[in-house]
Write a protein that binds this DNA or RNA. Structure first.
Lengths: 232, 232
DNA sequence: TTATTAATTGTCAAAACGACAATTAATAAT
DNA sequence: ATTATTAATTGTCGTTTTGACAATTAATAA
């Protein structure tokens, strides 16, 4: 029997930065850690990679268990593997960021942990290197969203341009001209205008749009230049 | 003593896709694997992550050992973690892609393995999921190079626009108009024109350029739109 | 009926893009 | 010495994209 003799073995975990949007601000979903060390401290949603699953599988499993959602947008970010990052035992963690429709989230599915949404800028200190993970995830979200139409993943099926506009501003932490934004976003050809209007936000009301799934699938990997002044 | 009881432990490795450019074509550096299983089959440069190093450290160590180079451009790609990807024992591998100046590479530093450059399109079949890794790396290289000035990393300190031009065409597998290319690349402001000319390629000779290190450092993370027809 | 408010459509000058032509600086051939 | 040749470089120009800003529209509230 061949084997890799003498090499050290490690625990491998996944940690998910779960982003949501409440209509005004970007939020992340945190949990109170259920095991020692650092029990009851706020942390990212995570778990160990089981023997019969890939890290991607593990991340999906964790998300399903903690949010009740399946098939959410999930993207591998990077691996965190400093030898001392976990004080108990060497554990490498694969960081993922997830985008979910905050309204689909089912609160408190499980008694094993407490989960709570925090404004991205008002989150508590997290355990280990999770603070760094959140910072990295935010950066990557911004980067990705500037080029690819992924922010839709945080909105309901039907959404308005103004909603999308606020979300873009929130993610990029900048002001975007309303008029140019709506022209640019509609010119992607990814949106289908619906007859119905959302009247909660204004007197005139804003038309609902939905994604053109077909075009979305085809263009998900395409470059779109969705942010103004992207170039140097 | 706290511990994470009952969780499985795995081997963690790194694998590097090393890209080089010989002036005409994109190449990758492969090695004949030195251990069972699949001994003497071609594979990527890799190694296990040691107890006192991060995956990034490990990748740099492997590269140093096998190419003699330090401080090369190295970027984490993704983790490969299918349970059965290594037939002997579960091993997760962090994939990296590296860009090196092929002329700096010192051949056969070590007798423990054989290393050889292959044209990217004429490479042999590789072990395990290494073929997939190469495909992913190529895609990522193309993606990254379209937006960030990283291809310089594969050229000597002094290089000409035509050299850079061929490299861009090679990476993107497309023809780019010579005239528009040279205007676009110089307009980035990242290049410093030297007095000297390279006369090997033509009668007129092409001016050498070097990188403006300062501007390069400042703009490395900036978007540059270096490829024509990038948008949909 | 009018004021108000937010959504939407319009305008326009400047910049970027990309297809293509002309010029230039050298060497090789006559 | 002159000319042909070759590849590098600089130019041209109509089209498209960008982004700053104004005007209009569709509703509700006063």
């Amino acid at each position: 029997m061949i084997e890799y003799s003498g090499q050290p073995h490690y625990l491998v975990a996944v940690d998910c930065i779960v982003f949501g949007f409440d209509g005004e601000h970007l939020k992340i979903l945190l949990v109170k850690r259920g095991l020692e060390p650092e029990i009851n401290k706020w942390s990212l949603m995570g778990g160990f990679v089981g023997a019969d699953e890939s890290p991607d599988d593990a991340a999906n499993r964790v998300l399903k268990k903690m949010t009740g959602l399946e098939g959410v947008y999930l993207e591998q970010m990077q691996i965190y593997g400093e030898p001392k990052r976990d004080p108990i035992e060497r554990t490498l963690s694969v960081g993922y960021f997830a985008l979910i429709d905050i309204h689909k989230y089912e609160a408190q599915l499980n008694d094993d942990y407490e989960a709570e949404w925090f404004l991205i800028n008002e989150r508590p200190k997290l355990i280990f290197d999770h603070n760094q993970m959140v910072a990295d995830a935010r950066k990557k979200l911004r980067y990705k969203a500037a080029l690819h139409p992924i922010l839709f993943e945080m909105l309901p099926k039907k959404f308005t341009i103004p909603q999308l506009h606020i979300l873009f501003e929130e993610v990029n932490d900048t002001k975007i001209d309303t008029r140019n934004f709506s022209r640019k976003i509609t010119s992607t050809g990814l949106l289908i205008k619906l007859a119905e209007k959302d009247r909660t936000g204004s007197k005139k009301g804003a038309f609902y749009f939905k994604l053109d799934k077909k075009k979305y699938a085809a263009n998900a990997q395409a470059f779109l230049n969705l942010m103004p002044n992207l170039k140097v």
